[in-house]
Design a protein around this nucleic acid. Sequence first.
DNA 1: GTCTATATCAAGATAGAC
DNA 2: GTCTATCTTGATATAGAC
Lengths: 184, 184
Amino acid sequence: MGRRKTIDHERILDAAEDVTLELGAARLTLDAVATRAGISKGGLVYCFASKELLIKAMFTREMKRFEEELLSELAHFEGLPFARLHARIAASKHETENTRAKAASIMATISQMPEHVQEVRQAYTEDMEDVHRSAEDMRRATLALVAIEGAFLVRGLGLIDLTPEEWTGVFDDIATLIPKRSKN
Amino acid sequence: MGRRKTIDHERILDAAEDVTLELGAARLTLDAVATRAGISKGGLVYCFASKELLIKAMFTREMKRFEEELLSELAHFEGLPFARLHARIAASKHETENTRAKAASIMATISQMPEHVQEVRQAYTEDMEDVHRSAEDMRRATLALVAIEGAFLVRGLGLIDLTPEEWTGVFDDIATLIPKRSKN
DNA sequence: GTCTATATCAAGATAGAC
DNA sequence: GTCTATCTTGATATAGAC
């Protein structure tokens, strides 16, 4: 009973995200994560000394992943004004394992460690700088940023029920809100 | 020292919302709510037999409150196409005690009883019917609905940091997305 | 390094005094 | 109807075997 397995950190974080999405942040327990990851609770705690550290790790991994995806998308919008906004749309457009995982990690963090929400805000810092470079188009760009992240959250939490095609349309329409030229 | 107080259900729900907003949904405990409401835990449990019922009551009250506010705003947009969308913007535009309370109740529900999220969805049903009346303008109206609720959530959770004036601007800009005439 | 077993504690819920 | 005191559970975290 209880065969020894090599514990994979990534697998644990995946399990934590699954549990959060399926059962809700309040039922994100060490037991549930260990079971889902197919390891023992002791093994889990050996890797992540506390539940708080587990959640931080989950959160940090998703923020990092998303920033990387955003940077890779950015290449496709070289030279365009508000390139980061377009890249953000491209990275958020389809509901994938990644976008669901990001939503789960934000949920867990907000509900259990709301004092760390400021780290989410920081992720938008560069976008806002992008936006603020152009006083004239600032309002539309701000609208686009809010719409992107709002749509992402609303879809991730299942608050509005649209088909995948409709969601794609929503993000496409948001893209049309972004000003065509930035003023400087 | 244990003076008898008349327990006010509304006051308890207010306390639950305060705790959720200030400490996070995970720290929404019966102890914290009782203390914040200035009553004993026993008194609290006498009113709301379980934590789950407390959260449901908080959630239901806010959904009802918001629907009422939406209906009262609706009077100002009589005859306009997509009147409900405009009314929803008017009701969401400023960050008030009401909007914060609604965000708190949604947070608590999502994190502790995600199976009830579908009740949030229902609240949008009428708006979506409003939207679907016009195939032609549907996309823009859908975009507006997603943007409204997304902006509401993102602001309520503190994910993007804008000034009150900037938020007002965002909602005003969303209003301009709503089609001027509905096709029927 | 991974496991089982256990200690500790916090929180939901109950019982009964007032 | 509201309180205090207590019960019970479930979850985090620790100790120690393998």
